[in-house]
């Protein structure tokens, strides 16, 4: 990598697999369950988190030496909330349609524990550039899992991907439905998202057994 030193590149690649925020740090599970019934929602949420976490990590990192430790969590919360509200207002004024798509996610971003988790664990102790990379890396790691879950839930639950009927029409009985296949409506509910996360964790630890915790 020309642009990034080896250490910096690790900040981006680590969270993608071996230090994934969802499957290993167990952060951001709630939103991974809540909004992954469709692939599109997963992607939108991932982009929103990428933006807020990248920017938020830089802001917190710049302020890290002047934040009083007693109220640091409140300060972090204010930074996230402010960023999200600014984005929301600007979108409402200049890209109204986009803001309609995103409006539901605003509240979810503020409460997403990945953001607070990375502020607390990384940005408070590292410089802005590193924090920025860490933010990007972690939100990409988050995105990977979200998109995998969204892919399977939408495919098996509704038989569509990004709204396209890839398996045929369940009502007209075309495509695979002609052979008696049925959508599994259970995939649309939160419990199956949790089970999907479980399966991903299982596969990941099977592939890389160093990740298994000793007890």
């Amino acid at each position: 990598m020309g642009l990034l030193s080896k250490k910096d590149a690790k900040l981006i690649t680590d969270p993608l697999a071996d230090n994934n925020p969802i499957t290993l740090q167990v952060l951001g599970i709630c939103s991974a369950l809540a909004i992954t019934a469709e692939l599109k929602a997963s992607i939108v949420m991932s982009v929103a988190v990428l933006f807020v976490l990248g920017l938020g990590n830089v802001v917190i990192s710049l302020m890290r030496n002047i934040i009083p430790s007693k109220i640091r969590i409140i300060v972090q919360l204010i930074v996230v909330a402010t960023l999200v509200i600014i984005v929301d207002l600007v979108l409402k004024a200049f890209a109204y349609e986009l803001s309609k798509t995103l409006s539901v996610f605003v509240g979810l971003i503020i409460t997403n524990c990945i953001i607070m988790g990375r502020f607390e664990a990384f940005a408070l102790a590292n410089g802005p550039w590193k924090s920025f990379l860490d933010g990007i890396g972690n939100s990409l790691g988050y995105a990977v899992i979200l998109i995998i879950i969204g892919f399977f839930r939408e495919l098996l639950g509704s038989g569509t991907l990004l709204g396209f009927k890839v398996l045929g029409d369940p009502i007209e009985k075309t495509g695979v439905y002609a052979f008696g296949y049925e959508n599994n409506g259970f995939m649309l509910l939160a419990p199956m998202a949790l089970i999907t996360v479980g399966i991903i964790i299982w596969v990941q630890r099977y592939k890389n057994q160093d990740l298994i915790e000793e007890n």
Partner: peptide, 22 residues
Amino acid sequence: TDSNTYTVLFATGMVLVVGTLL
């Protein structure tokens, strides 16, 4: 940054800045 005075001042300042901006 641990003193009470600093904490209170910081909180007040932050609220003012963020409030005004928004």
